[in-house]
């Protein structure tokens, strides 16, 4: 007796011969960004949680010290963009798989898109406009590079 498997619910895509195959590029993006994110996030976790006093040492001065260096600005900026788009695309996959109602599916995907865009804009602004030595703040809360300014 041969065992049968139900036909998939997702209908066949009628015409794939024209235009960009976005699903293919999404598939490639998940793998390419995934490899980079392993390096970026493992580095992030090692420097922030393993070196020195780890999580206990994280405060404004710690972040200010890191982002005074363009190296960490680029590192964290790359992590921000790659991770949010990777995560947003992953969530889109789950919504497509589990939200069977067409309207709900559209709403959830728009919500994911808004969250990703808003946080990319916010995060990029924070990294690029950050001032490690804000005027009028107590000196003991600021990174050591602020002394003598």
């Amino acid at each position: 007796m041969s065992q049968t498997i139900e036909a998939p619910r997702t209908p066949a895509i009628p015409n794939r011969s024209k235009g960009t195959n976005w699903e293919k590029w999404g598939w490639i993006y998940m793998r390419a960004s995934g490899v980079l994110l392993v390096v970026l996030i493992f580095g992030h976790l090692f420097v922030n949680l393993m070196v020195g006093d780890g999580v206990h040492a994280i405060d404004f001065a710690f972040v200010g010290g890191k982002w005074s260096d363009p190296f960490w600005q680029v590192w964290d900026g790359l992590m921000l963009w790659l991770a949010l788009i990777h995560g947003g695309n992953g969530m889109r996959t789950l919504v497509n798989d589990y939200a069977h109602n067409r309207g709900l599916r559209g709403t959830l995907k728009i919500a994911i898109l808004i969250a990703v865009v808003v946080l990319i804009v916010l995060g990029t602004l924070v990294i690029t406009t950050f001032d490690p030595c804000p005027a009028g703040s107590p000196a003991d809360l600021l990174p050591s590079i602020c002394k003598g300014l």
Binding site: D59, F60, A61, V63, G64, W67, L80, A83, L84, G87, G88, G90, M91, L94, A115, L119, L122, G123, L125, V126, T129, F130, P134, S137, P138, L141, L142
Partner: peptide, 23 residues
């Protein structure tokens, strides 16, 4: 993946507080 995504949303918001004040 879902757990990491939701943490990422929170983590970007908490880090954005460096732009508010050190306190």
């Amino acid at each position: 993946g879902v757990a990491i995504f939701f943490f990422l949303l929170v983590h970007i918001l908490d880090t954005a507080l460096v732009r508010v004040s050190p306190e």
